[in-house]
Write a protein that binds this DNA or RNA. Structure first.
Lengths: 355, 355
DNA sequence: CTGAAAGCGCTTACAG
DNA sequence: CTGAAAGCGCTTACAG
């Protein structure tokens, strides 16, 4: 039996509608039903595997649909069902490797659940975040996975989403619990870091982190201060800017300017750690000889950089899976208490703290 | 006058349908028309600014629509118009900074033209690429921007798209001209590199590039060989793998194992250059003292790494703009000759070749 | 177990 | 200049 390519250009192989017209546009349910000699209602039920259809009908219709290359029109289904099966995701910067990995993992989870991902980049600006969320709402997404650009101002962008779209915050939370949150446990992660440094005999540390715009910026800095106190370490200097390699280089300059190099520098991302180490090296300092350095995130960079980084490995797959689970739950029922789900990370020891 | 938030949760501020029911779901054209006291036909025409509607009607309807927070339902419009205003993009790895920048630029161009981007990652595998393209087709995208995972095998994945979806290839081309192509001019870019190296007195070079799977892999290697011959340089060794930092480190090992270090190493991406330099340094070699190194792409990494990279700067914005222009043209009319549009890049001189 | 019909929200050719 | 109606492709409550 010859396979039919209804969407191909080859006029010979084209499927035909009852009136004999060749089908070049996508095959519709009407086409399938006509060929099977049943109503579109029955064809629809057979395809969906609805209860009250004979087994043989199910088999027959599905075979024909398959053969004709039928695929349900998502716009028609969405219009009828009031559900687009589209989920939006807004990230601050897709260029940050950690976010690229997160997007990848989220997309996989979403696809598994039968949803498509509509990705948007806020570039870290609240205004752009607002516009992105509005576009997603206009597209009638069923839900949104949001990495807030700002722990306070993002409340405004979220308001523009309207009240009835399910939202889950990932990686960063807003100050007010405006939606469920899934992210790494910063205190646990940095606890592992500081404990490791303590074992290495560290007593003074410098901190290269990010500013107060994100919850991670706030939490990681607070965690480092608390943990340093717990372990009777002194924080000799700190520099807080943004999550980038350039910021790491700037941190190195600031830390060197502040006085003698501490026993260790705790960085709040691998990007920062890499920028920092590169600049230190440029200035004639060696890591880990002159100071130990730790990162946060744990992607490819940590493994291939020299020295390899001691870093907190984010449970990316678990974060993505939980985020999607939370979102699907919210989409099913909008009420219920706001959840805050933090996942414990692991420490990966590399050469940057002496291996 | 009180602003109405039809999608909000506040029961007091809700807009109401003629029957008095509060509108919690998105406002429809029917709602707007009812409030304006006109038919939905007139409301639709006024909103679209169609010719045969009075100016005052246009103003009135638009004001009401604005006030009610009306946004056209894209699914209904798509169903009626046969156009989803969705464009798919398939990239090999979103984690590669150059692709992240490209996606960003393409999205901006697309939004400007009134389209939304549906992003998919093939992870460099043809099977996954095929699946992704099928999903995009099933979603009824109006067009696809594709970075082929393999210059030969991608022909197969493209076939699964069906004949009537507009496609533009970006950055990498398939061997057979299956669609319009937009990308950097590799020969021009590497010409700038080799000329620069010649001025620096280089007479032996090593090459750290990628394999024959992508057109860029083939073209850049061919270009380097041709240009080296033109400038009477000797290629002492070459290592070809993939576009990653890890591959750059492996290249360094291979090149060092092959014999004395050449005057310069030409890398076919900044990632490779960075991996290479890091590993060389680890082995006790300094760049640019012991050998010069050049990259390709020209993103943030080139500027913040130490040493800063001499690199070929891809005209990302122009590539994205042309790709979208080509795609829109294809969407408007499917026939016409297949175009191959290569853009000349510029050279950015950094410290990796002595500044 | 199957079919006819309604209806999701739009846009546009067809009448006035 | 405006309105009534058709129809895009589905799914499901309502009848048989």
């Amino acid at each position: 039996m010859r396979t039919i390519h209804p969407q191909g250009l080859d006029a010979i192989g084209l499927a035909r509608r009852p009136n004999g017209a060749a089908i070049t546009s996508p095959v519709t349910l009407t086409d399938v039903a006509a060929r099977a000699g049943v109503s579109i209602a029955t064809a629809s039920r057979a395809l969906a595997g609805k209860p009250r259809v004979s087994q043989e009908m199910i088999v027959r219709v599905r075979e024909i649909a398959e053969e004709m290359g039928y695929r349900v029109n998502p716009m028609a289904r969405a219009l009828r069902d009031g559900s687009s099966r589209l989920v939006g995701m807004v990230v601050p910067v897709i260029g940050i490797p950690f976010y690229a990995r997160l997007v990848d993992a989220v997309e996989e989870e979403l696809n598994r659940a039968g949803y498509e991902l509509l990705l948007a980049d806020s570039h870290g600006f609240v205004e752009e975040e607002t516009r992105r969320l509005q576009v997603l709402r206009d597209r009638r997404v069923d839900g949104v996975i949001l990495i807030p650009s700002d722990r306070r101002k993002t409340a405004t962008s979220m308001r523009s989403l309207g009240g009835d779209i399910a939202v889950v915050q990932v990686d960063r939370a807003t100050d007010k619990p405006l939606a469920d949150f899934v992210g790494v446990d910063n205190l646990v992660g940095l606890g592992l870091v500081v404990e490791h440094l303590a074992e290495r005999g560290v007593s003074t540390i410098a901190y290269a982190g990010t500013d107060d715009a994100s919850s991670n910026g706030v939490e990681r800095w607070a965690a480092v201060q608390q943990l340093a106190a717990d372990h009777e370490m002194t924080i000799t200097s700190s520099f807080r800017s943004e999550f980038s390699i350039a910021a790491g280089a700037a941190a190195a300059d600031a830390i060197l300017a502040a006085g003698p190099l501490a026993d260790a520098v705790v960085a709040s991302s691998d990007q920062i750690a890499v920028g920092l180490i590169s600049r230190l090296r440029e200035k004639g300092f060696d890591v880990p000889r002159d100071t130990l350095v730790t990162g946060f995130d744990g992607g490819e960079l940590a493994d291939v950089y020299w020295p390899t980084l001691t870093t907190v490995v984010q449970p990316v797959a678990a974060i993505a899976a939980d985020a999607v689970t939370f979102l699907l739950a919210r989409m099913a029922k909008h009420d219920g208490a706001v959840r805050r789900n933090t996942l414990a990370p692991l420490l990966q020891v590399g050469a940057s703290t002496g291996g």
